[in-house]
Design a protein around this nucleic acid. Structure first.
Lengths: 240, 240
DNA sequence: AAGGAAGAAAACATCGGATGATTGTGCGCA
DNA sequence: TGCGCACAATCATCCGATGTTTTCTTCCTT
């Protein structure tokens, strides 16, 4: 499919102008923009076209529009902006899922290593408490929730919110694969225990190795079963 | 700043409906949507509101609208969709820059390790050729270009296009920091040579260690000089 | 004096209708 | 067969209006 060059439309120009004002520091997080009619006049386009520009920037989490109040610059938090990629991940095909899983594995090894090197006693206790909840999970859903929480705690210990957000993003396909794979509780617990042991012992290599094993299980399963990820949901009522 | 819940507007609903049709597989990359007036009627909103929805999805690289032709589902390539985060990275403050650099370092170590483990002779030769160009760079710009290309080649050897895209994304702040830092050619060459040696010798640890050194230089500089990244550009003509 | 309710004002959300600009297709001619 | 032109299709933009939601102001009650 040939990619066409984006036109120099008035709406795109308005988007660029607002973005440039943010880049230059003239507009800052939390600032309120002029009302639509005025902003449109200042940027040189109609109010409807301005609304298209604003809507695009809302989609990118740059602006927030509140009816009855006004339009504001968002907090421009990269971790939140990453969430806009959720759809991209959700619709990725089997090969992309594998790529996302590889990225996930890279991140998980990294944070396991950091946790092993730098964790506090309180942080270790949080992991242990989570591990206890995992071992007592009474359903697949509860197991998946405790599993996810374990990984989120690890990411928080690493202390990079953008990385935490990125991990959550790339974990989407993992959750889908695991629903299909139906790994049992005893196996998940054993894998987490190995990661925990490495972290408790401040053994970076052991923690990383255990995490590699934990994530590679589902990655290898996906590589072997790509068609399982192709199952479409039933279409909604309004078809085109 | 308090985050307000996104309203259930007609435009947001239309966005969700189209996304759901894509998720379900009823709409696929390259498919052409009905003309605006018809699509608006089918989704139950006015044409202007539909255009807002389409514009938002264009911003997210989900749709492509061509005047005189029609509106199409894009190729939904995650690597391309990641580019929409460019703005988020560009406007990130000093702390976020540090987080992005940490992520960059994580990725660079990962790909250096993969390159050392799996490179072909042809791929090693590509890296060597790039290194020769770096050593002969006649300006700072030429040096930065060759440096960037070295990293891109590494990412390509790793064979994960999404990771390549992600690396390019998080490399933005690095380029800004390096323009300020003004590292000299001899030093960059020496650091690349160490990475290359590890890769040539298929020594994963050596390659990773050398890459850690290479990236940590700029990361540590940024940590020590956060104010250098706060310099705003001069504002454009149209101020608000 | 403080809190709640009601109404007005502010501002976005949506609609309908029209014209302008661009792209693709089909036809005619060299 | 290739190129140019005209036309149709469709997005891009604008204008004007009404609807809906949020915030602010005023008044009343405790």
């Amino acid at each position: 499919m040939e990619v066409r060059r984006m036109s120099n439309s008035k709406v795109d120009l308005a988007i660029s102008l607002v973005q440039e004002l943010i880049r230059s520091g003239e507009l800052r997080p939390g600032d309120r923009l002029p009302v639509e009619a005025e902003l449109a006049a200042q940027l040189g386009l109609s109010r409807n076209s301005l609304r298209e520009a604003v809507r695009a920037m809302q989609a990118m989490r740059i602006l927030e529009a509140r009816q009855g109040d006004g339009t504001y610059i968002s907090d421009l938090d990269p971790a939140r902006m990453i969430e806009t990629l959720r759809f991209a991940v959700d619709v990725s095909g089997p090969q992309a899922v594998i790529w996302f899983l590889e990225i996930r594995r890279m991140i998980e090894l990294h944070i396991a290593g950091i946790a092993a090197a730098k964790r506090s006693e309180a942080e270790l206790e949080r992991l242990n408490a989570c591990h206890r909840e995992l071992s007592q999970a009474a359903s697949f859903d509860a197991m998946m929730e405790a599993d996810t929480r374990f990984h989120v705690i690890l990411a928080e210990i690493a202390g990079n919110p953008i990385l935490t957000s990125l991990l959550e993003l790339v974990s989407g396909p993992t959750v889908r694969a695991r629903v299909w794979r139906q790994q049992d509780l005893a196996e998940v617990c054993a894998e987490h225990a190995q990661v925990l042991a490495g972290i408790a012992a401040r053994d970076v290599d052991a923690a990383k190795h255990a995490m590699w094993t934990h994530i590679s299980g589902v990655l290898n399963w996906v590589v072997a079963h790509p068609e399982e990820l192709e199952t479409p949901k039933s279409p909604p009522g309004s078809s085109i």
